[in-house]
Design a protein around this nucleic acid. Structure first.
Length: 328
DNA sequence: AACCACTTCAACCGCTTTTGG
DNA sequence: CCCAAAAGCGGTTGAAGTGGT
């Protein structure tokens, strides 16, 4: 059973968007939102016609000359794009909340750190960088960060230094450290999902208050459930993220100890994660107060991001040094 | 000025996941 | 529960821009 292609209609336009097309799309979405991307192009053209007719009627108090040829106009003008193309254009370029311009140093660091945790899950990474799109981050990674890491002798896949023979093989990790990585992966995904939901309900992002029960709710949610199933082996060490966070002697809080974290188990909290099996390595100097880490997801994320990842990221400070990488 | 190689990034493609009848 | 359609996602492509010779 083959899938029907997205653009089944012949003659749909491809390639770069023209400003007029952008305008039509923006006007339509601002007015109506996007209910169905597939039907949007037709509706956008129709709305354009209706607007013109309404304006004509308002100005001249009679039916617009467009009326008899509305169908023809619709096929000749406006948004002859497939819904998929519209969605992509909107989410990657036209959305008003998109932050344009070069990435800051902090953003680049964050991308590298999140990539170490999440792998090539660009959408999940993008959810932690307000105003940045997954496409943008993916491009940043492929064009800049990956090369910079390579030039530093760091494997962009494993985030570990190359050995003399090339990329290092993944070290085996303890159940406890795997558990941490899996949990963080699941948590970040859930956080991304929650932030999406909060956006959907129009709550301003800044108004999202840290929720003290965040971990508890998450642990009791389907994410936590699937996570527990997959991690029976680690049960003895870590009972829940709460207990993990509240008891500094259990599994995570190792002060000054290098923890190497193996691959995120295939199929952790979501089936999709089986696609990405990037290893993680934390050089964890993880001595902060564990009570703080359960206070809020933001704090927890900060804690996670405060881990100095194995590779020294100081190279990012001196961008010029690596703008023209030696021998790369 | 012309050519070539390289880089960047918007857009497309195809696969997976989610949703709804 | 099943299936088809829609949405979402990551990988890849190719046009445009830039720099070097």
């Amino acid at each position: 059973m083959g899938r029907r292609p997205c653009c089944e209609r012949k003659g749909l336009k491809k390639g770069p968007w023209r400003p007029e097309e952008d305008e039509i799309l923006i006007n339509y979405i601002n007015k109506h939102g996007h209910g169905s991307w597939r039907s949007l192009p037709k509706l956008a053209v129709y709305t354009l016609c209706l607007n013109f007719e309404a304006l004509w009627k308002f100005l001249f108090c009679r039916a617009s000359p467009l009326q008899p040829i509305k169908g023809l106009i619709s096929t000749l003008t406006g948004l002859r794009r497939c819904g998929k193309s519209c969605r992509l254009r909107w989410t990657n370029y036209l959305r008003p909340d998109i932050k344009r311009g070069p990435f800051t140093l902090d953003e680049e660091k964050l991308v590298i750190q999140l990539h170490a945790i999440l792998g090539n899950r660009w959408a999940a990474i993008a959810s932690q960088l307000p105003g940045r799109t997954d496409n943008e981050i993916k491009n940043l990674w492929n064009t800049h960060l990956k090369k910079r890491l390579l030039c530093m002798g760091v494997d962009p896949l494993t985030h570990e230094p190359f050995t003399s023979g090339g990329p290092t093989t993944r070290p085996r990790s303890s159940p406890a450290t795997r558990h941490m990585a899996q949990w963080e992966s699941a948590r970040l995904e859930a956080e991304a999902r929650l932030s999406k939901e909060s956006l959907f309900f129009n709550s301003p992002p800044t108004s999202v208050k840290p929720d003290p029960d965040f971990f508890l709710r998450l642990w009791n949610s389907e994410v936590g459930e699937s996570f527990r199933k997959l991690n029976g082996e680690a049960k003895a060490d870590c009972r829940s993220p709460i207990s993990q966070a509240s008891s500094s002697t259990k599994c995570g809080s190792v002060s000054g100890v290098t923890i190497d974290v193996g691959p995120i188990a295939a199929g952790s909290s979501t089936p999709k994660s089986s696609r990405t099996e990037d290893p993680i390595m934390f050089d964890a100097s993880f001595s902060s107060s564990s009570n703080e880490s359960e206070d809020s997801s933001d704090t927890a994320l900060q804690l996670l991001l405060d881990f100095p990842i194995n590779n020294d990221m100081s190279f990012l400070e001196d961008v010029d040094t690596y703008a023209t990488p030696p021998q790369c």
